[in-house]
Amino acid sequence: MSERVDLTSDHRSLEDAHETRRYFDKFGRIITHLTQVAENATSNKIALDTELPTVKDYLTALSATFTALSYKYLLAGRVSNLLPSILNIDRQDSGFPIYQELLQMASDATQAERRLKSLPSMKQLKQDMVHHILTENTVPIEQQFAASQLHYYNLLRSDRIFWAHNDPRAVWQGDMSENRRSYHIHWAVYDSQQNIPVIYLLDVEDTGRHALLKDERRWPRVQAHLMAQSSASMKLVTIARGFDQDFDDLHPKRLRRIFVGPMYSHAFTEQSGPLRDVLAQSSTVPELDWALAWTAETLVASRSERQSAGFFSTVERQIYQLDPLGTLGGFETDGLTEQQRSLILPQRPYQILKERNPPGFDHIRKYVVSPSGRVLSYR
């Protein structure tokens, strides 16, 4: 009999309300800097200008997700009889909440309307809190919990949440010719293996009889296909070629995948290598005890060719530009055209990292957050 693997061994439960708040405060600060990182990447020609609004939207949604979870677990450890669970994070590989947290949030969203009807209004809760304090002379825990859940379920009704699965959307970019249209398709997932958000951006040309977004047959199939292939372990060239083979009149020209994470923190995660010592030395100031990886992978079609599709017809297929050695900048890039690896961190950890100058960081771009909140880019 094969040995069973404990998939929860890398999980950490935040059982204390104060610890949970510190965790969400840290992530709140990190996410506020990510928009500047995306803008910086665009200005440095690392990313396309057309991608920036889409990436910003997903980062805004990710911020809303963390805000919602912070309300859900606001009183963790203080209302164990009311709150059925506590927040679990991946301490080893991501630093983010585990995938099951987002699945549960999606389930909670289906019950949001019913739960909101069962909760008092915020005005009533505030009155109840005042009455409890004056009459009982104790902290109104139950009323505070009800208020936190009211905020939580109200946020879940928003369409700006980053869910475990964020279905593909397409934006028409224009007509390239009479029978050829250009679309920008984007979607995102919270990867179940790595426990981090992953954003996908696809530029595709459409030569179908009907425009893609008006085609009730093709567009649902495209959405289902892309979501089914959204695994962080799958190579971009595998995703693109599979799409190219399954849709003869859709031609994937450029596919990009952005990994938002992992997040490293001496207080919340376990890491090895140089970052461990860097963050340990910075951990005396909680606001400086973090670093976030940001990795962008890109696959580009260098040309297309006609290939046989039976005895009397041909179809257009894409030929992708791949790194022949599968190693760019010392990192494995099999199945990619290029890869940009970045590390976002406060100024103090960056200074320590620069002083130590450990091997392996020369090819990683550093986005450094100054004490004023400005983000600067260094190689």
Results as ranks from 00 to 15, higher is better:
residue 85 S to W: 05
residue 69 L to Q: 07
residue 158 S to L: 05
residue 36 Q to H: 14
residue 107 S to I: 13
residue 323 D to H: 11
residue 64 A to T: 05
residue 98 I to W: 10
residue 318 Q to L: 09
residue 145 F to G: 03
residue 321 Q to R: 12
residue 334 D to P: 06
residue 36 Q to K: 14
residue 357 N to M: 08
residue 247 F to S: 03
residue 343 L to F: 10
residue 346 P to S: 08
residue 375 V to I: 09
residue 198 V to Y: 07
residue 121 S to G: 14
residue 201 L to P: 07
residue 167 D to N: 12
residue 186 H to L: 00
residue 218 R to G: 02
residue 182 S to D: 14
residue 325 L to D: 15
residue 125 L to C: 05
residue 101 E to D: 07
residue 113 E to C: 02
residue 369 V to T: 14
residue 58 Y to V: 02
residue 268 F to E: 02
residue 145 F to E: 03
residue 18 H to R: 13
residue 96 F to R: 00
residue 329 G to D: 00
residue 84 P to V: 11
residue 11 H to T: 08
residue 32 T to R: 15
residue 123 K to P: 00
residue 252 P to D: 02
residue 5 V to M: 05
residue 139 V to S: 07
residue 268 F to Q: 03
residue 46 I to T: 09
residue 302 S to H: 10
residue 363 H to V: 14
residue 183 Y to L: 09
residue 321 Q to C: 11
residue 342 S to P: 03
residue 184 H to L: 11
residue 61 A to D: 11
residue 212 L to F: 11
residue 301 A to Y: 08
residue 144 Q to E: 12
residue 31 I to K: 00
residue 164 A to P: 02
residue 146 A to S: 11
residue 52 L to A: 06
residue 167 D to K: 09
residue 36 Q to F: 12
residue 132 H to K: 10
residue 119 L to F: 11
residue 236 L to V: 11
residue 188 A to M: 05
residue 375 V to S: 10
residue 269 T to G: 08
residue 4 R to V: 15
residue 87 L to K: 04
residue 162 F to A: 04
residue 259 F to Q: 07
residue 36 Q to W: 09
residue 353 L to S: 02
residue 283 S to D: 11
residue 329 G to E: 03
residue 175 D to L: 00
residue 196 I to R: 12
residue 134 L to S: 14
residue 112 A to D: 12
residue 47 A to V: 12
residue 127 Q to T: 14
residue 267 A to T: 08
residue 198 V to T: 03
residue 311 F to W: 12
residue 331 F to Y: 12
residue 378 Y to C: 12
residue 222 V to T: 06
residue 353 L to E: 01
residue 282 S to N: 01
residue 218 R to Y: 10
residue 162 F to R: 03
residue 27 F to R: 00
residue 182 S to I: 01
residue 36 Q to G: 10
